[in-house]
């Protein structure tokens, strides 16, 4: 070491003896040359390895990861857009089907209503006809009955008159009196 040179100059020191105890070791200039040389070698090697190999490699790893994340994200965004478009198309189809079903239902309903109306109208007119016939029959029966009532009344009146007066009543006068009563 550097001590050797000074020891040779001094020529009195015992080899291995405490030649530089007075000097604080970190400040001992005898060590400076060796330390600087080895520092230059090792730091130069570190700088060379970092700048040529390690840092470009880490940089490319980070760039590759960034690219991968970005492409994955854009693929995910695209997939999301596709899904949204598919959902919208589905929604549209569903809406069209719904409205079609509604129109079909409405048409069927209207059709059924119409048929029902027609049937009801037919039934009603038939019933009305029957009702009218029945009414007409009732009216004729009634008028016939009323005619019979006149005759019965006249006979009854004649019988009452004959019984009361003791002589046959004039049928014409009775009929006239009944007609006058009725009128």
């Amino acid at each position: 070491m550097a001590h050797d040179a000074e020891e040779l100059q001094a020529g009195t020191e015992v080899p291995g003896g405490p030649a530089h105890e007075a000097t604080f070791p970190p400040f001992d200039p005898n060590n400076f040359a060796a330390e600087l040389i080895w520092l230059a070698i090792t730091f130069g090697a570190i700088y060379f390895l970092m700048s040529r190999i390690a840092l470009p490699r880490v940089g490319s790893i980070l760039a590759a990861r960034k690219d991968k994340i970005e492409s994955d994200l854009s693929a995910a965004a695209k997939a999301q857009d596709d899904a949204a478009a598919a959902a919208a198309a589905h929604e549209k189809t569903l809406g069209a089907a719904k409205s079609k079903a509604q129109t079909l239902g409405q048409a069927a309903h209207a059709d059924a209503q119409k048929q029902a109306d027609v049937r009801r109208a037919a039934l009603e007119s038939e019933l009305n006809a029957k009702l009218a016939a029945a009414e007409a029959q009732i009216a004729s029966t009634k008028s016939a009955a009323m005619a019979n009532v006149d005759a019965i009344a006249a006979e009854t009146a004649q019988a009452i008159l004959q019984h009361v007066t003791g002589k046959p009543a004039d049928p014409a006068a009775v009929s006239a009196a009944i007609a006058a009563l009725k009128g």
């Binding site: 550097a2 060796a34 330390e35 080895w38 570190i46 390690a54």
Partner: peptide, 23 residues
């Protein structure tokens, strides 16, 4: 004087550790 000392040894150790980690 370019003697290989304990300081030089640990400079080489530092170099080895950094190279191991980064390379």
């Amino acid at each position: 004087d370019a003697s290989f000392t304990n300081a030089s040894l640990f400079m080489v150790v530092i170099l080895a550790v950094i190279a191991f980690l980064m390379i």
